[in-house]
C-alpha cells in the first residue's frame, strides 16, 4: 500500500463531491414533496390513494435501492416509449434523482405520519375549541410540532441516502465513486482509492451530523428549554 497515493487521490476524488451532494439535495427535495403528500394521504386515509400509498411504501422498503435504481433506469424509458417520449439519451443523473427521491419519499412519509400521530390529540381539540378549522389546526399546531419531532429520524434518513448515492456509478454517473473506478483502472491501486473515498464520505457524514444536531437543538427549544434554564 502506498499512503502518498491517498494524498494524491484526495483532490481528484473530492472534486466530484458536488455531484454526490447534488444527488442528495435533489433526492431530499423530491422526497420531501412526495413524503408530505403521501403522509397526508395516509393520515386522512384518502380512499383509493391510501392503498396505493401503502403498496408504494411497502415496495420501496422491501426492495434494495440498487434494484430500484435499475428498475427506474431501464424501466422508465421503456414505459415512456409507450407514449412516444424518448428519454434514452437523458442524463443518468435524472434517473438517480428520481430513484433516490422515490426512496426518500417513502421513508419521509412514514416518519412524518408517525410524528403527526405523535402530537397529543388534546392539542387538536384545543385548536378546534378556539374555533380553528382543520387546515389552520394542521398548519399552525400539528405540523410545526410534528416536523420538529420528525427531525432526528429525518436526519438519519438523509445520512443513509448520502451513503446510498455511492451506487449511482452503477448506471454510469460520474460521481466520486465513478471517478474512483476510473482511478483504479488507471492506477491499479484499488485499496488506496477506497480508503480515500471512505475518508471523504466519513468526513461529510460527520459534518452533516454536526449540522443536524445543532439545528435539532434550535428546533426543539420548547421541549428542552426546561433543562437548559435550570442549569
Amino acid at each position: 500500500m502506498d499512503i502518498t497515493l491517498i494524498v494524491d487521490f484526495f483532490p481528484k476524488l473530492i472534486s466530484y463531491l458536488h455531484i454526490t451532494l447534488l444527488i442528495l439535495v435533489a433526492a431530499v427535495a423530491i422526497g420531501l414533496v412526495i413524503g408530505v403528500v403521501i403522509a397526508l394521504i395516509r393520515i386522512y386515509k384518502v380512499p383509493g390513494f391510501n392503498q396505493l400509498a401503502l403498496i408504494y411504501i411497502s415496495f420501496m422498503r422491501g426492495t434494495p435501492i440498487l434494484i430500484q435504481l435499475f428498475l427506474i433506469y431501464f424501466g422508465l424509458p421503456t414505459l415512456l416509449a409507450l407514449v412516444h417520449i424518448d428519454v434514452s439519451r437523458a442524463n443518468p443523473l435524472l434517473f438517480v434523482a428520481i430513484t433516490y427521491g422515490l426512496s426518500c419519499g417513502a421513508s419521509f412519509a412514514e416518519i412524518i405520519r408517525g410524528a403527526v400521530n405523535g402530537v397529543e390529540k388534546g392539542q387538536t381539540e384545543a385548536a378546534y375549541s378556539i374555533g380553528m378549522n382543520e387546515k389552520q389546526m394542521m398548519v399552525r399546531i400539528i405540523l410545526p410540532q410534528a416536523l420538529v419531532m420528525a427531525f432526528p429520524n429525518f436526519a438519519n434518513s438523509v445520512i443513509g441516502s448520502l451513503k446510498d448515492t455511492s451506487l449511482a456509478f452503477t448506471i454510469g454517473v460520474m460521481d466520486m465513486v465513478g471517478r474512483g473506478n476510473t482511478l483504479i483502472a488507471s492506477s491499479l491501486h484499488a485499496l488506496e482509492v477506497y480508503i480515500t473515498l471512505s475518508i471523504i464520505y466519513y468526513g461529510v457524514v460527520i459534518c452533516l451530523e454536526k449540522g443536524f444536531s445543532l439545528s435539532e437543538k434550535k428546533l426543539q427549544r420548547f421541549e428542552g428549554s426546561l433543562a437548559v434554564d435550570t442549569k
Binding site: G122, I130, P144
Partner: peptide
Amino acid sequence: TAMVFQQYNLFKH
C-alpha cells in the same frame, strides 16, 4: 364558546 381542558392541552411549541 371556549373550553378549558382537564389536561390543559396548551400548544407546546
